[in-house]
Simulated scan of single mutants.
Amino acid sequence: MSQLRVLTVDDEPLALRRLQLALENVPDVAHVGAARGKAEALQLIEKYQPDVILLDVRMRDGSGFDIVEKLIGGDPPAVIFVSAFDNHAARAFEVRAIDYILKPVSYDRLRSALDRARSEIENRSSEERIAELKEVIRTLREEVRSEPVQRFEAEFWVRRNVTGLLRVPVESIEWISADDDYVCLHTSTGNHLLRDTIRGILSRLDPAQFIRIHRSSVVRIDAIEAVKRNGVSSREVHLTNGTRLKVGRVYNKLLKQALT
């Protein structure tokens, strides 16, 4: 096999872009297309007949398992799951039918997975791969049924310039402020704009780690050094980096509950 034809599937545009950039540096690989959901993925699979699919586990219109089920027949492509969540990984390796890459995807890990996929395609029959795909679906669906629906981001990718992207780990964010149609992610190494709202960004963050203290600001709970009165009825949050932020009246009770 001279080139691996790879299709990427993820409902996050930036995740697709990162995979595309990584694939450009892997020799003997052709990125034939990108899909943002189950329906589009099935159309592109039929159109391009890829050798390998880099597949997110969960998407807005279904799951990666729904797509894998449709591959049972003929000469199925090799499937590599790509996810920010490691709770499926043990089962994925246990059945040894596929590979499983955790986000953020490193170049070396991606290349290793693609090398393994190439080996499986060249050395294993279609019948063997179909049987293993069936086992993958059965075991991994059991994991999905038992876990919470809600998921939270581990990282954000922001535009650094016209063509570049920068990864901002959630664990590096100290606080977040509203900035028109954007939010500003404040970290110890700099500030980064992301197109979203305060309400939208909160839905993507673990409430055990972040709390809203004002209509225009969210803070990491671990970054709070003190909460002090500022006048008769108002309060300020003092962060460990020296930043002082006003607490909105409607958020006083929530803040107290989070810190006690």
Rank of each mutant, 00 (worst) to 15 (best):
H88D: 08
H88P: 10
H88I: 11
A89D: 05
A89C: 06
A89W: 06
A89Y: 02
A90V: 15
A90H: 14
A90P: 03
A90R: 14
R91V: 15
A92M: 05
A92T: 01
A92K: 07
F93R: 03
F93K: 10
E94R: 15
E94M: 06
E94N: 12
V95M: 12
V95A: 05
V95D: 04
V95T: 13
R96K: 15
R96E: 13
R96D: 15
A97K: 04
A97W: 12
A97Q: 10
A97D: 10
I98K: 00
I98E: 00
D99L: 08
D99W: 02
D99C: 02
D99I: 06
Y100K: 00
I101V: 09
L102H: 02
K103W: 02
P104E: 04
P104L: 04
V105T: 06
V105Y: 03
V105N: 07
V105E: 03
V105C: 08
V105P: 01
V105A: 04
S106H: 12
S106T: 15
Y107M: 13
Y107S: 06
D108W: 03
D108R: 12
D108Y: 04
D108E: 14
R109N: 09
R109V: 05
R109G: 04
R109Q: 07
R109T: 03
L110F: 04
L110K: 01
L110G: 02
L110I: 12
R111M: 12
R111L: 11
R111P: 01
R111E: 13
R111N: 10
R111A: 09
S112D: 11
S112L: 06
S112F: 01
A113S: 13
A113E: 02
A113I: 09
L114C: 00
L114D: 00
L114G: 05
L114V: 05
D115S: 12
D115Y: 07
D115T: 08
D115H: 11
R116G: 08
R116Y: 11
R116D: 05
A117I: 06
A117E: 02
A117Y: 03
A117L: 04
A117Q: 06
R118Y: 01
R118W: 04
S119R: 13
S119E: 14
E120S: 12
E120P: 00
E120K: 13
I121Y: 09
I121S: 05
I121R: 11
I121W: 03
N123S: 15
N123K: 11
N123V: 03
N123G: 13
N123D: 09
R124N: 11
R124G: 04
R124M: 09
R124K: 14
R124Q: 11
S125P: 00
S125T: 14
S125H: 01
S125E: 02
S125R: 03
S126E: 08
S126H: 10
S126G: 05
E127R: 11
E127M: 12
E127Y: 04
